[in-house]
Structures are given as structure tokens and as C-alpha cells.
């Protein structure tokens, strides 16, 4: 139960609260005043209906589609990451989740010249690799440096600091990190399951609520500031040997688009850079669409892009 305090909403002055307390004490309730408070509170806390036409106009002006930089993945995602949406990459160890995240960050920072927030929860980020990727994309040192400055890195190792981080980003409107640079259009979290999965599986429901809190904050963030969110997730193996994303059923409703990355069959001793991506949830493309892509795309040399394209 919420206790009434002054300034909770307009009209609820300190005097009124005192009066109310007195009213209650004297068992004499001023019904009119109470109803007025109720009206104000409801008006302040209910959402307004928006017409579809307005919404569509809004959508056209605010939504952007950020290309991932990899033609095969763009194909799967219907031309890229949509702002205002949550996209998830899941896959086992070594399937290239982090590489795809790096690739997306580099593409957005270099070619689209937009800011990127990269939240690393595993210690897996290496700027050396980002720099390598930039070198294959651009030969000018200034461009590379400018792109590196557009990527803002948070290194966090528990769910509470992740919540703190998302809260402060939301509160500041993504502003402090955007100083001097372009505005932020993408938030990447690699990986979300690394901080959440140690909390799940106990009898306490606390872990589940924290997971939902992360998701709710992230969704509010992407909607309010029209940025694209890309998160990575682990996989679990069911008894039959089939692979599915971790974090359970409740999480599975949250991302708008989910991709499952799989590596090559490791039964042979060859370790290739070929990976496959399967669309397992999408509202735009048919599910179970599958493409093969090559992780070495991001290390390709500029001269022979056509050969690589043929390859993938």
C-alpha cells in the first residue's frame, strides 16, 4: 500500500495531506477531496490512447534500420536491426556471438557514424579486435579513431550494476556518453545471460524478477530513445541433443527477433570460420530461415570482397 505524501502528484499539497490525516483521525472523510485526488492520480498514471495513423507517422519518422554490415545477416533480419526493438543472438561457446556484436558495433560506428553503447559482462571485449575490424573497413587513421570514439564501453559484472547502468542511461537520456560524438543508436549487451543465469534455478523468485526488471528497463530504453538493442544469450541442450536459447520461457517472449548461431560440425578436426544462423522468432520473416555466413568476412581484405561474397 502506498502511503500518501506531499507532492506525489499536482494538487497534493502538504496541507491537504495533513488535512486528510486529520479527516481520517476524526473519522470525518471529505469525500469530494478524496475523489479529486483519485481523479488526478488516475489522470496522471494512465496512458493516453494514440491513433494508429499517428503511431504510423511516428514510426516513419523515428524508426531506423541499422545494417549489421554483413549482407547475409541483413538478409535474415530483413535488412538489419530495427530501432526500438530488442534483437537476440544465441549460440554455444565459440559460435561467433561476440564477433557479430563487434561487427555490428564497428559498422554502426564507422559507416553509419552513430554512437554505440557496448555493455560487456564477460570481459570478452578487446579493442584490438575492434581496431582490426576497422582497419579492414577503412584505411584512414582518423576515421578509425573517430569510430573507436563512438563506441562507448561499459564493463559490468553483476546484474545490479547492469540495472544501475541502464537506469542512469535512461535518466540521462543517453546524453553524457554522446557528448562530442554522434547520438547513440544502438545498445549491445554481451552477454545478458552471463549476469542473469547464475541467479536463476534456485527456489527464490528473486532472480526471475531481476531478469524481468532488466528486460523492462531495456525495452523502455529502446522505445523512448528509439535505439536498437542487441543482446546475446547462451544455449542449453535438451535431452534429445537439440539446442535452444537459455534463460527459459519467460525470457523468450521479450526479444522481438531471435537468432540462433551454430558452429560447424566439430566431429572432424577442421575448424572453419563458417557459421550458420537460424531465425527462431521474428515478426517479419518466416521462422526457421537459415543462412550460412563466414566470420572471416570481418577480416577480409578490401580487394577481394566479391570472392568472399560468393563463398558465403
Amino acid at each position: 500500500m502506498v502511503v500518501l505524501r506531499a507532492h506525489m502528484c499536482p494538487g497534493l499539497e502538504l496541507q491537504l495531506v495533513r488535512d486528510l490525516r486529520e479527516c481520517v483521525c476524526n473519522a470525518y472523510l471529505c469525500v469530494k477531496a478524496l475523489l479529486a485526488i483519485r481523479r488526478v492520480l488516475l489522470a496522471q498514471h494512465t496512458a493516453f490512447p494514440v491513433s494508429g495513423a499517428d503511431l504510423y507517422e511516428d514510426l516513419l519518422s523515428s524508426t531506423a534500420i541499422l545494417s549489421t554490415g554483413h549482407p547475409r545477416l541483413d538478409e535474415l533480419l530483413d535488412s538489419g536491426l530495427y530501432t526500438g526493438e530488442l534483437t537476440e543472438l544465441s549460440g554455444g561457446p565459440g559460435t561467433g556471438k561476440t564477433q557479430v556484436c563487434f561487427g555490428v558495433a564497428v559498422h554502426i560506428a564507422l559507416h553509419l557514424k552513430q554512437g554505440v553503447i557496448f555493455i560487456d559482462t564477460t570481459g570478452g571485449i578487446t579493442a584490438t579486435r575492434l581496431h582490426q575490424m576497422l582497419q579492414t573497413e577503412s584505411s584512414s587513421l582518423e576515421e578509425q579513431i573517430a569510430a573507436l570514439q563512438r563506441i562507448h564501453v561499459f564493463q559490468l559484472f553483476d546484474v545490479f550494476s547492469l540495472l544501475d547502468c541502464l537506469c542512469s542511461l535512461r535518466r540521462s537520456g543517453l546524453q553524457p556518453v554522446a557528448v562530442g560524438g554522434a547520438c547513440v543508436r544502438a545498445v549491445i549487451i554481451d552477454s545478458v545471460s552471463a549476469v542473469i543465469s547464475p541467479l536463476l534455478g534456485t527456489r527464490h523468485t528473486e532472480g526471475m524478477s531481476l531478469m524481468m526488471q532488466v528486460a523492462a528497463l531495456l525495452k523502455a530504453l529502446v522505445k523512448d530513445f528509439s535505439v536498437a538493442a542487441l543482446v546475446t544469450n547462451h544455449v542449453t541442450r535438451s535431452v534429445g541433443g537439440a539446442v535452444r536459447p537459455a534463460l527459459g520461457v519467460s525470457w523468450s517472449h521479450l526479444p522481438r527477433t531471435r537468432l540462433l548461431l551454430e558452429g560447424p560440425d566439430r566431429s572432424t578436426h577442421s575448424f572453419s570460420s563458417l557459421r550458420s544462423a537460424t531465425l527462431i522468432k521474428s515478426s517479419r520473416q518466416p521462422c526457421h530461415m537459415r543462412v550460412e555466413f563466414d566470420l572471416s568476412w570481418w577480416s577480409r581484405s578490401k580487394e577481394v570482397p566479391s570472392a568472399k561474397r560468393k563463398h558465403s
Binding site: 571485449i125 570514439q149 562507448h152
Partner: peptide, 12 residues
């Protein structure tokens, strides 16, 4: 007390 970010350039 909230976490602060560094740019990828600083990280490099």
C-alpha cells in the same frame, strides 16, 4: 556511483 563508460579508443 553509477558505472561510467570508456570509449573503445581508451580501451585500445
Amino acid at each position: 556511483r553509477y558505472p561510467v563508460s570508456i570509449t573503445a579508443l581508451e580501451l585500445l
